[in-house]
Design a protein around this nucleic acid. Sequence first.
DNA 1: TTGTATGCGTTATCAC
DNA 2: GTGATAACGCATACAA
Lengths: 344, 344
Amino acid sequence: MAPPKKGSLGADPATMKDVAEAAGVSMKTVSRVLNRERYVSDETRQRVEAAIAEFNFHPSAAARTLAGKRSHQIALIYDNHSPHYIYQIQTGVWTRCVEERVRLLAQPCDAASPDLEAEVRALIDQTRVDGVVLSSPVTDVAAVLEELELRGVPYVRISPGTEHERSASVSMDDAQAADEMTMHLLSLGHRRIGFILGHPNHAASDLRLYGYRRALDRAGLPFEPKYVRPGLFDFASGEAAADALLDLPNPPTAIFASNDDMAAGVMTVAHRRGLSLPRDLSITGFDDTPLASQLWPPLTTVRQPTRDLAYAAAGLLFDAEGEIIHRRLPHELVLRGSTAPPPG
Amino acid sequence: MAPPKKGSLGADPATMKDVAEAAGVSMKTVSRVLNRERYVSDETRQRVEAAIAEFNFHPSAAARTLAGKRSHQIALIYDNHSPHYIYQIQTGVWTRCVEERVRLLAQPCDAASPDLEAEVRALIDQTRVDGVVLSSPVTDVAAVLEELELRGVPYVRISPGTEHERSASVSMDDAQAADEMTMHLLSLGHRRIGFILGHPNHAASDLRLYGYRRALDRAGLPFEPKYVRPGLFDFASGEAAADALLDLPNPPTAIFASNDDMAAGVMTVAHRRGLSLPRDLSITGFDDTPLASQLWPPLTTVRQPTRDLAYAAAGLLFDAEGEIIHRRLPHELVLRGSTAPPPG
DNA sequence: TTGTATGCGTTATCAC
DNA sequence: GTGATAACGCATACAA
C-alpha cells in the first residue's frame, strides 16, 4: 500500500521541500514567496503559489521561529477585570493580527503578582514573541516595562497611566470626557453632582476625577469631597456609593459613576428607593458594559473607543518600527434618557 | 569589552547547552529534568535545577515543537458572541493550562464562515497544537470535527449540541435546568408562563425549550405556542419578546427567558409599562451575564458552571488520552427576588 | 542513571 | 532573480 499522499488525509502535513520540488524551484524561493519578499519573478511566484495551494501547505511556525528572526506571534498581556473590556481589547488586537498574518498569544495575569516580571520573561524567552501589547493596569507595572526593554521586545501600551514618554501608546482623553459629561449635567442645571471613583489601580480613575473637578472649577462651583465616593468598577460598589450619596443631608441631584457597572448599581438603588428616573435623579457613566447602557432609562455614557484603541495599538507594533508614537482616539458622549434637569 | 553574560541583561537568552555545561551534565539530562522524566538522580536534578535558575533558563518553545512530538500548546476555538461566556470559557481553560504548563492559543472565529475548516487546518499545520477545545456553537460544525479527526488532533467539546458520541465532551443538563426553573414558577402558582427562546444556532436553546415543555407536560398543562417567542440571547430581543408577550390578550404572569441578557430586557419592558416587580410579573433566566442577575429585583437564574466546564474540558484533553469521556457538571437554581406568586 | 548522534522544517548567508 | 548550505535549540532513538 502506497504511503498516503503528502498533505492529504491522514498524512503528515506537506513541507516546504514538497512544495519546492513540485514547483521546480529551491526552498529558498518558496520561502521568498511565503514571506512576500521582493526579487521573485511573477511567473515563479505563480508557480509556487499554485504548488502551495495544491499541497495545502502551511509553514511550520516552530521552524520559522527557530530559524528566523521573527516568530510571527505577538502577545497581549492583560489583567482579569472586566470581561467586556477584555473582550473589546482582544477583538481589536486580534483583528489587526489577522491582517498582519500574525498569531496572538493571550496572556491573562495578575497585575499585582510579584512574579509577573518572571512570567513575562518566561513568555519572551519561550515564545520569542515579536512584540507585546499591554493593557491597563499592566501598562503601569514598571518591572514589566523594564523586562521588555531589557530583552529588546517592542511593546505598545493601551491607556497607560504613568511615564507616558516611555513607550508607544494609544489612549483616549479620560479627563476631557469626564469634563464634558460633567458639563452636560451642569448645563442641565445640576449643582450638586455626586461622583463615584473608579478602581484605584486604574489610571483612568484619577483622570476622570480630574475632569469632573475641572468642569466644576470652570463653572465656579466648589469641589465638595462629600460628593465623591470610592468605587471598584463593579455593580456592588456602585450600589454602596449611591446609598451613601443619597443618604447625605443635601443629596446630589445627579450622580456620575466612573463606569456603567457602577451606574447600573446606582439605578438599582434609585429604583429601590422609589425614585423616578430621571426626574428625581440623573445618572451617567462610562460604557464598560453595553448591557448597563441599555437599561431603562437608557444610560447616558461616554462611549469609549476600546476596540479601536486595541486595534491601533497592535498597528503601532507592526508599523512604528520602534518609534515612540502616541495616538489619541476620540470618545463620544452618548446622551440618552437617564439625565434631565434637576427637580424643582 | 566582554560579551554580556548569557541570560543576563541585553544578552541572548541562555540555551540548554549553557545550562548543561554549567551543571556538568549532558543536554539530554537537562532535557530530562525539564520534562520531568524519571531516571535522574536527586543530586543531578538539583545541580541542573540550580543551573537553570542561575541562567534563568526557559527552553525555546519553537525548538521543542520542532524536535519533539508535542508543542506544549493547545488551542481554544470559539465564536464571538457573549463576552461573558467567552471570558468564563477562556479563564477555565487557561487555568488548567497553567497547571499543565501548556500555552493557550485563543482562536476566535465565525462559526458560520465557509472558510472555518481551512482556518482550523492552517492552525493545526502551523502550530501543531497538542489538542483543541471547542466551545458552542463551533462544537457543531461537522467540517471542523472532520478536519480535527483527519489530522489526528485530540479535541474536547464544551456543550455540544449534536453527535454526542463523536468526541469527548463536557456539558450541563440544560433541559433539566429549564425543567426545574419552570417547576419553580409552577409551584408558585403560575399557569401562563411565557418563554423566550435562545439563539437558534445554539444547541442549548432547543434543550431549554424542551425542559420547559417537559415541566408543563408533567404538570398536565397544555403547551401553547403563543407563549413562546424567538430570541437571540441579547437585550434587544428580550425587550421585543416581552412586548409581544405582554400584548397578548391573556398575557403570561411569568416570563422565562433563555438567558439573562434577555431577562434584563424583559425587566426593562416591565418597568417601562409601570409593572411592579415581581408582584405583577415574575421573571427568570440563565446567567450568561452576572450584571443582569444583580438588577433590581435580583433575577432568579440558573447558574451555569461555564468556567468549570471549560476547566474540565481542558482536563479531559490532558488526562483522557483519547478516550471518549462525557462529563456532566451540575447547575444550580439561584432563587432571588424576581419571582413571586401570580397576581390575584 | 547518563551520554552521543541525528534530524525536525524553516530562514540567513552568501554565492551564482 | 535564484540556489546551496549552514545554522536555529531542542527531543528522539539508541548506546553505554
